[in-house]
Structures are given as structure tokens and as C-alpha cells.
Amino acid sequence: MPIVSTQRMDLNAVGLPTHQLLTVNGEREPHEELDPYLRDIDEAALGDFLRDMMVLRRMDTEATALQRQGELGLWAPLLGQEAAQIGSVRATQSEDFIFPSYREHGVAWARGVKAEDLLSVWRGVNPSGWDPNEVNIACQQIVIGSQALHAAGYAMGIKFDGGNQVALSYFGDGATSQGDVNEALVFAASYQAPALFFCQNNHWAISEPVGLQSRTQLADRAAGFGLAAWRVDGNDVLAVHAVTRAALEHVRSGAGPAFIEAVTYRMGPHTTADDPTRYRDEAELEHWRTKDPIQRLTKHLQLLGADVKSYVQRGEQAADELAAELRRAITSMPDPQPTALFAHVYAEPHAALAQAEHEYLQYLEEFETGESL
């Protein structure tokens, strides 16, 4: 397969401005619209952002290694997207309900999902991994874009019930070409539902560049559906945090649904079954390495005169502790029993399902007795 460039068009040439607060060198740029949303973000909060992103990167690295070692069936890396996930989810309220795709590991972890529960799905031990009602985040959605419809429907329910929550949906640039996402935007706009759609534009939908599937900025599409929209540097954790707060304020006030395009980059493969060297050149990858979100925040802390070494050490310690616990949990996780396949399919007893379970257990017994059908 030939390598395809993402530079089919200059996506920065038209459309909404791409909000940025931290340059790649860590310099803080003033921003009249966004600065008010960061008044409570002090040095300690910046240190927390750094720790969170370091832990998330280590979890991603550890999960990739576990997959290579045969402990996981598959893994969808998020390397390079730490700021987009941490910056946004830390702006939400606990009662807001989140509908993620299969790459929002950091969003789930920040919401209180244990890393081992997150990885148990990719190991094939659990069908879901956690109870969505305990952490107000749905289980990861593999079907591209389906979670946008779930968020729109949930948001409509919030409005009908008179609630003050917001339903958030995360998806990638490729999902914006799916009918589900577009239909979700239509329903959310039509009902003025309290929904926020967060698109992580990581430039590649597997091997398809974003410049091929969209001849304009993805955030520009929101206006056609009647949604307020923001475009933000997805590798700038401060800008992402501020923009998400602004969008949530807009939605929560009853002004209608909103859309955020976080411009970031998928540094690793689409999944561990993918080989990005077949379609992506090294020069493009190197260009995005200079925009690394963790390095950018570290440089900003240095410019503030903070004790960066202590913040980094704290992040490394937290990352090491998570990695050790994750590996211990994964490698000692028991395999599910055959009957687990039939559990929780229906809320009430179901005759056809019971019959299927009975026949399946009889089938398994044949291997023990040596009998054949």
C-alpha cells in the first residue's frame, strides 16, 4: 500500500480558529475568551495534569507490551492523545454521562475505571469491564460512531426529565463520516438536547487521512446541524480544558448541543494489528513529535519556575505503581466460565437463551466424555 500524505489540503486555512494557550515551547499565550475558564488552574493543578498524562501514557505503553506478549488479544493505542482526553474529561462534572469509543482509555481511567477492568475486555475475560452507572461512563463502543447516537438519546432523556447533566460522546475523525454520528447531530440539534460531541481528530482513520474524507475542518460541519462549535489544539491540555469548560457551560445553560474538534495526532498504530509504516511517512510522525503534549506542559512548568523534577518524579512513581498493579492483575485474571456467555443477555428469564445454554453445555460435555454428535 502506498504512503498517503494527510496534506491534501491546508485544514488551517479556513474555518474556525484553532485555539491554543501553550506553544510547543511551553510559553503561555493570553486568550481573552478562554482565560476566564482557567482562573482556578494553579501550579498544583498543572502538576496534576502532568501526572495524569504520564500515568495514561504508561498505561498505554504497558498495555501495548502486554498485547505483544500474548496477554491481550488486541489494544487500541492512544499515544499522543493524552492532553485531548485528560484536558476534556477533567472539565466534566461527575453527574455528566460519557459515551466513549474504543480509544478513550484515559477518559475511562480518569472517571474512576480501574486500569485492569479496562484491559480485561481486551483480554477477553469480561464483555464490558465495569458498571456504567457507578462511574457515569458507558463501556467502550467498538462499532464506529454508535456511541454518538447513545449520547444524543441520553441527552434527550435529560431534557425531558428536566436534568442539568450533559451527555458527552467521544469519537475520532473517521467516525464523522459515519451515518450514526450525523444522525446523532441531527437529533441533538432538533431537540436542543444537552449533548457535547468531542471529536479527537488524530488525522488517520486507520489508513485513511483526514484530508481525504473532509475537504474542510471537521468543526465546520457542526454549523450545518445548528451546533455551536470550537476547534482546539488537542495537544495543549490547558486549551482543551478551557474549551471543554466553555462548551459545557454553553450546553448546560440550555443553549443547545455543541461540538469540539480537538486537533491531535495518533502517534502509534490504529490498533496493535495495524502497521502504520505502510501508509504514513516518518517525516510526518517526526513533525508531530515536536508537539508532544507531555513535553509541552513540562516546558511550561519549567518556565513558571516550578520544581519540575518533583512533579516528574511524582508522575513516574504513580505510573510505575499503576503498571505493576496492572500487570499483576492481568496475569492473574481467571478465564471466564462457559456459562458467562449467557449471563446478562436479558433482564428477565428467556426460554430460547436457556435452551441455547443447555445445548452448549451438552456440546462441551462431549469433549469430556469422548462422545460425538
Rank of each mutant, 00 (worst) to 15 (best):
M1W: 06
M1I: 04
I3P: 02
S5I: 02
L11D: 08
A13T: 03
A13I: 03
A13W: 04
L21T: 06
L22A: 10
T23S: 15
P30N: 13
E32Y: 14
D35G: 13
D42R: 14
L46R: 14
G47Y: 12
G47N: 14
G47S: 12
D48I: 13
M54W: 12
M54F: 11
R57W: 13
R57K: 10
R58A: 15
D60L: 10
D60Y: 14
D60S: 12
Q67H: 05
A76M: 05
P77E: 12
G80F: 06
E82V: 03
R90W: 00
E95W: 01
F97G: 04
F97K: 06
G106V: 02
A108P: 04
W109F: 15
R111K: 01
K114N: 15
K114S: 15
A115I: 05
A115Q: 12
E116K: 08
E116I: 09
D117N: 13
L118V: 11
S128L: 14
E134I: 05
E134K: 10
N136F: 00
A138H: 13
I142A: 12
I144T: 09
H150C: 08
A155Y: 12
M156L: 10
G157V: 06
I158L: 14
K159S: 14
G163D: 14
Q165E: 14
Y170A: 01
F171G: 13
G174Y: 13
S177Q: 09
E183M: 03
E183F: 07
A184C: 07
Y191S: 10
A193Y: 11
F197R: 01
F197M: 02
N201G: 03
P209D: 09
Q213D: 13
R215I: 03
R215Y: 04
A219P: 07
A223D: 14
A223N: 08
F225M: 03
L227Q: 08
L227S: 06
N235Y: 10
A242K: 03
V243T: 04
V243E: 09
T244L: 00
T244D: 00
A246Q: 00
L248H: 00
L248E: 00
V251S: 00
G254M: 07
A255I: 04
A258V: 00
R266W: 06
M267Y: 06
P269F: 02
H270F: 06
T272A: 03
D274M: 03
R278S: 04
R280G: 10
L285A: 08
W288H: 11
W288Y: 11
P293E: 04
P293V: 02
I294D: 14
L303A: 11
G305I: 13
G305M: 13
G305P: 13
V308H: 08
Y311A: 10
Q313Y: 10
G315L: 08
G315F: 05
D320W: 02
A323D: 12
A323C: 04
I330Q: 08
I330D: 13
M333S: 01
P338W: 01
T339R: 00
L341V: 05
F342D: 09
F342C: 02
A347H: 09
E348H: 07
P349Q: 05
H358W: 10
Y360G: 10
Q362P: 10
F367Y: 15
E368Y: 12
S372P: 11
S372H: 15
